[in-house]
Write a protein that binds this DNA or RNA. Sequence first.
DNA 1: AATAGTCGTGGAAACGTTTCCGAATTAATT
DNA 2: AATTAATTCGGAAACGTTTCCACGACTATT
Lengths: 342, 342
Amino acid sequence: MGTYKVTIEDVAALAGVGIATVSRAINNTDGISPKTKEKVLAAVEELGFIPNSFAQNLKFRQTKQIALAVPDIRNAFIPEIAYSVEQVAKHYGYRVVQINTLGNIRSELELLRDMKKLHVDGLIILPLAYPKTLKDLINKASLPISIINYGKTLDTDVKADIVSLSTPEGKLVMEHLISIGRTRIGYAGAPKEIIEERFFAYEDALDQIDRSLVYFGDDFSLQTGAKAADYFVNLTHMPDAIYAGNDMVAVGLLNRFKELGIRVPEDIAIVGVDNNLLCTITTPKISSVSIMGAEVAKVATELLLQRIEEQKKGLFERVQFEPRLIVRESSLSRTRSTHHIE
Amino acid sequence: MGTYKVTIEDVAALAGVGIATVSRAINNTDGISPKTKEKVLAAVEELGFIPNSFAQNLKFRQTKQIALAVPDIRNAFIPEIAYSVEQVAKHYGYRVVQINTLGNIRSELELLRDMKKLHVDGLIILPLAYPKTLKDLINKASLPISIINYGKTLDTDVKADIVSLSTPEGKLVMEHLISIGRTRIGYAGAPKEIIEERFFAYEDALDQIDRSLVYFGDDFSLQTGAKAADYFVNLTHMPDAIYAGNDMVAVGLLNRFKELGIRVPEDIAIVGVDNNLLCTITTPKISSVSIMGAEVAKVATELLLQRIEEQKKGLFERVQFEPRLIVRESSLSRTRSTHHIE
DNA sequence: AATAGTCGTGGAAACGTTTCCGAATTAATT
DNA sequence: AATTAATTCGGAAACGTTTCCACGACTATT
């Protein structure tokens, strides 16, 4: 329709008033009589006038937009986070700009460097790695930032709100595997540079580490899980349990083991991390640690938006969530393997 | 940093030139001597000046932003689409605003109504349903729109580029099931209002329909699949194959059948739609139709951005993709069930 | 050496709002 | 009825760009 370029002046002309009056009418500002207000609103309706938000932004120095930077929206638990962020943002009247950093550290840095250019009111970032340069950039950035933090140890003096999991997820996994009587516990996942805490939990839980029980693949994928399974099977002394760095790896392990005729959990127990939907649809179902994606994202977004709205400087929040272990069939103890949990 | 409010005037002052000259320098416009250009750029660098994009937007009537409206980012194949859209957009220098319509028709309508308020340069929409009102709104909307279309028949006179799958995905499924010798084929999925073509393909492929072999659940979820399995098992005359409306339903069916001691594919074959990752990690692996999410999204985005950049009016594209059937274990023919496919 | 033509530059208008401020009208107070 | 106070309204500035236009300085042509 050609009705697009309707401006406040057109409305003013039609209503026979000044533009200031129109502005007052549509913004419910004081200082306008009910009668003229009605007249103006009628004109607005007739012309289908919608305020140009650039002009408003220019005026207010606000965009009502936040950016959400994640490694890759296609990854396991990220959609849940993206969804949660958008719901909260919508509730506050904000929009969400989506950015995939591709877990590329350079890309995360560039992102922050370009932040001003983006002209968003705030940023939620889920960093894959956490180099010092990133921290410096965050501290130098002149806009509110919330960090969703999985498995990294962050410096405490970062000028951003941080929502993270307090207990390393892996700790729960290891304690559980030990509690069901497993003694040769292996690890499979991406190299420790990626999400180091997941692997550190493994090291911490054991008195001494048998390096042959640790498999580092390229990433946290099904393929990595499958390759890990092949690796473990060829050991002269196989593990009796495996802590998988995430659920994708766990599923990859499980499927390959099944193909190779190895029973889970009888021969090997498997526990993953993320509590992905996948865990409930495999046979056996896979025990996993829920990392509370929706909740974490919700709080991170709320903190960010409150900071924006209240123009809060300093006093950065540190919120901790506790991961939850959900025990399923893949890690039932042998002695009570008939006992049904979940 | 307090460097935030740096404006073009500050740069001009520092460089000792006028603001017009600064503008010319940073935009590589003609009519400026190399010497002053250098001087200006030095000032830009020193002050860390970044043009205010609102002001630019206001000037250019452009946002360099597009909106992507999907039912729910958490759903099966949507993240792949979102990812693909963002990649293409980035390549063109555009940003993507993410909107979950929640498959709520009202919400999709409101979205279009609010489109002008959003002030994006274009919209990519993946509609769940396709009521006439939506078409009217699209036609009335004054901004470029690309529709990603799965399983709906759209009026040809919609004023938008449309990228869709040509053959109803379900046709492939039905032909395949018939070709492997199944005679009592059932359907399980959401009510036909949701993605009607998927069910229509079922009707079309059969000479006569046994209503008892059709199960409509609430949605396309694991639960719907499980409930459907319960339903089919209780029939006096069970089907020997099931066309599942999507992979979630297929997985739900499979798992419940396994719990009930029914063998797949020996007793019942199952084929899903979407070619979700899930299909490869179940036992048996599930045959499915790939709906080419990444490719469809890529083309839809390219069409939109080209339309925006070239200010193209009319001449709306209709791009068709062919779905691809990927045969896995869940629908091997009984007679050659030892033959390994994928 | 004088004129025409380039080139480089700055001033100012324009994009569409919001809001300050002053003017004009109306209502309230004595 | 006259002054004051309150209310309603319009003009204009401001937000930070880009770009049109005009002007001056310089080079090149005769």
